[in-house]
């Protein structure tokens, strides 16, 4: 019986080995990198909410401090989403007829919580704590971006583990004086490298432990 493949078909078998390798490599590449894509991590994507609350208006326009609404950010793991009562502190008097605020008034009337959609949702095996970051000189902005410029809330960073570790490996890059944590217009000084190092020392940040698994995972 004659050979099925002529000798001249050898190049095709060699090419197919190479192609198979390339296919495997590209699948691996997609799997390993898919979480870095903004489309997947939802960076820069405004999440729809029951009320189109604007941080830009309330923070930049009205000059309201982050802690006016996020009251537990300094003392608890959870920064706190304000109860409807907080909205109504002003909005029982201002914009009382505005249709955009009807869900807020309905929530207050019926004693039923507004169901906000989460923007920053870490996996349940990550035990992030706001209070320690705030008290050790990590500004709101470092993780949440320019919230004071966001008409609608969106993630500014991936919050991937790789991104967390960027800072946990060397917090001196991002640390700032404690009294500047809530300043949304803070500018890092030119000598951040030296200032950062001295702040890390002053605030007793245990850099040797920051990359331990159990710092974030339990």
């Amino acid at each position: 019986m004659a050979q099925v493949f002529p000798r001249s078909a050898n190049w095709a078998s060699k090419a197919s080995i190479l192609a198979a390798l390339l296919i495997v490599a590209s699948i691996l590449g997609v799997v390993l990198n898919i979480n870095r894509i903004d489309y997947v991590s939802m960076v820069g994507v405004a999440i729809d909410q029951p009320v189109h609350f604007s941080h830009k208006h309330h923070v930049t326009g009205m000059g309201i401090d982050c802690r006016y609404c996020h009251t537990t950010v300094e003392v608890s793991a959870f920064a706190g989403v304000p109860p409807t009562e907080t909205c109504m502190t002003c909005h029982s008097q201002i914009w009382t007829e505005a249709p955009i605020l009807e869900p807020v008034r309905a929530s207050f009337r019926d004693n039923k919580a507004i169901e906000w959609n989460r923007v920053h949702d870490l996996p349940d095996f990550v035990y992030f704590n706001h209070s320690i970051h705030v008290s050790q000189g990590i500004g709101c902005q470092s993780c949440h971006g320019q919230v004071d410029q966001m008409p609608l809330m969106m993630k500014a960073h991936t919050l991937n583990m790789e991104w967390c570790l960027d800072c946990h490996r060397d917090p001196a890059q991002f640390i700032r004086p404690r009294d500047q944590v809530f300043n949304m217009n803070y500018e890092y000084p030119a000598n951040q490298e030296t200032l950062g190092k001295s702040l890390v020392a002053d605030y007793d940040v245990q850099t040797s432990q920051l990359t331990n698994c159990s710092i974030c995972h339990r």
Binding site: F78, V81, A113, E115, P123, D124, F125
Partner: peptide, 13 residues
């Protein structure tokens, strides 16, 4: 199941 475990986060429905 690991990302959304059978536990409540603060204010979760």
């Amino acid at each position: 199941a690991m990302y959304n475990q059978e536990k409540y986060e603060p204010l979760e429905a």
